[in-house]
Design a binder for these strands. Structure first.
Length: 459
RNA sequence: GUGCGUGUAGCUCAGUUGGUUAGAGCAUCGGAUUGUGGUUCCGAGGGUCGUGGGUUCAAGUCCCAUCAUGCACCCCA
């Protein structure tokens, strides 16, 4: 029989015990902060109906959706014509009706509409689950990754934006990651488009502006011209692109520039209020207005947030914003929400690179009972139960392998203590306790052993 | 979808202007030590050199194709 080479799909990963301990440390930290801020957990299915997902993330997003082939005779829904025409998007709708979720926000909007009668608004939920994107994997980019989302839906108050920023500040404080929080507002971006007379090109403008720090002013202008923006409009855009100074100075310039745009004025007022409240709070990380922040997700309508690690280059580790009418598509208009999403996998990469995982994430079995044979096994099994009842994680090596093998095994697993209980110990109703770090060995009773292990663990 | 790079043992890699039987370290397993690991010594297993074709007396090495993978763009957590 020929064996096949085992592999996993591109952009997916296995996680070792050591990695899982560290990943769980991140999830636990984020979860604690979510709960501390009053968010409640939900989960939604890995797959959604395609009708829920399509059209919510822009054309690019639709392309990146993983689609699930219908079960059984999946071709039955497709006509001969469908198969013959070179029409992949059309055909895919005939043979696939489900897809893997692309983010947690859209499924949440669907959840809210479906459960609206059980929810008392404003509803604050958190959700920690994997999402899938058919992107080309590279550094910090995976096809399967975890998002940790906190959203508040059913409240227009800007307090919510501020709370999320506070939450972000707290999560990264606890994890020890240095970050920079950038804020912008879609309404301001719309106002800019209006002010330079190019409302129709809002998306092109925001995407081009977003690249400013990457490709520079000239290239951005070239790209805008290529997208069909008039020279006059590009000209008018320059003062905004090059805007420098304090947030107050930026707001001043914006107010003058966007004076003719109601939506722009509205956006400025929102941001001013958010900053005003933020100034009352003591935040650890710098929060700044960044007009080049665009964010491609189509559903954002108001404030947008992005968080970048300052010491590791990996793209954003956290992003979010306000969406005024995501539930409207599902038949429940007028319910505004705002949310934030932490990218657990990128946070992991940042922490690994910056050496931020402490010993707290190093947890293994505390006590291993060496196995000497059948009779000793029985003896140890009774002791083992009592050790576990005392709250100490313990296990018995499952077979009477050579001592060297058992000790090596304990060493590799970073077990702190090994209990040796053979014939001699059984006769004296005692056991030998070995400290794997120091190599020191003592003879003692079960109670003495439990106290010793607990003492050292507590110290 | 576009561009550039890389594929040799489980992992990291060496392999000369093409030249006889493809190597090392780490890891794994076994022994030295049948009740003692982290440092020693000895030994063993493990390879269709990504795959297919071509050039050549001869290809891990050169050429082409293909697949996989990494990076950049796009987009994003």
């Amino acid at each position: 029989m020929s064996s096949q080479k085992p592999s996993i799909p591109k952009g997916t990963r296995d996680f070792t015990p050591a990695e899982m301990l560290r990943r769980n440390y991140i999830f636990d930290t984020i979860r604690e902060v979510f709960q501390n801020f009053g968010f409640q957990p939900i989960e939604t299915p890995a797959m959604e109906n395609l009708s829920v997902l399509l059209g919510k993330y822009g054309d690019e997003g639709d392309k990146l959706l993983f689609r699930i082939l219908n079960s059984g005779d999946f071709l039955s829904g497709a006509s001969h014509q469908d198969l013959q025409l070179d029409n992949a998007p059309g055909l895919s709708l005939k043979i696939s009706s489900k897809g893997l979720r692309y983010d947690l926000t859209v499924p949440f909007a669907r959840y809210v509409v479906q459960h609206r009668n059980e929810i008392s608004f404003p509803f604050k939920r958190y959700q920690i689950q994997p999402v899938w994107r058919a992107d080309r994997p590279q550094r910090g980019r995976y096809r399967e990754f975890y998002q940790c989302d906190a959203d508040i839906i059913g409240s227009d108050s800007l307090i919510n934006e501020v709370e999320l920023i506070q939450l972000v500040d707290e999560v990264f404080r606890r994890l020890g990651i240095k970050v920079q929080v950038k804020l912008n507002n879609r309404k301001i971006l719309a106002g800019i488009a209006h002010a330079i007379g190019a409302e129709g090109s809002l998306t092109d403008i925001t995407i081009a502006i977003d690249k400013l720090d990457k490709i520079g002013q000239e290239k951005v202008n070239e790209e805008l011209a290529q997208k069909g923006l008039s020279a006059e409009a590009i000209d008018k855009l320059q003062p905004i692109l090059l805007m420098q100074g304090t947030d107050e100075e930026k707001f001043g310039l914006l107010q003058r520039t966007l004076a003719g745009s109601a939506i722009g004025i509205d956006g400025i007022a929102e941001m001013q209020e958010i900053f005003e409240i933020l100034h009352l709070l003591e935040l650890r990380h710098l929060v700044s207005l960044d007009l080049t922040l665009a964010r491609g997700l189509n559903y954002y309508t108001g404030a947008i947030i992005e968080v970048k690690a300052t010491e590791v280059q990996i793209g954003s580790v956290c992003g979010g914003g306000r969406y005024d009418d995501l539930t409207g598509i599902f038949g429940m208009p007028g319910t505004s929400g705002v949310g934030i999403s932490f990218g657990a996998d990128r946070i992991y990469d940042v922490m690994l690179e910056s050496n931020l995982f402490g010993e707290s994430s190093h947890k293994s079995t505390q006590v291993l009972f060496a196995n000497f044979g059948k009779a000793e096994e029985r003896y140890c099994l009774r002791l083992l139960t009592q050790v576990r009842k005392a709250g100490i994680s313990a296990e018995l090596y499952p077979e009477a392998a050579k001592m060297k093998k058992q000790m090596t095994w304990a060493d590799k697993k970073e077990v702190a203590w090994v209990v040796l209980a053979g014939k001699e110990e059984m006769e004296q109703n005692k056991l030998t306790l070995k400290n794997m770090r120091s190599g020191e060995q003592i003879s003692c009773t079960l109670d003495q052993m439990i106290n010793r292990v607990k003492d050292v663990a507590g110290a």
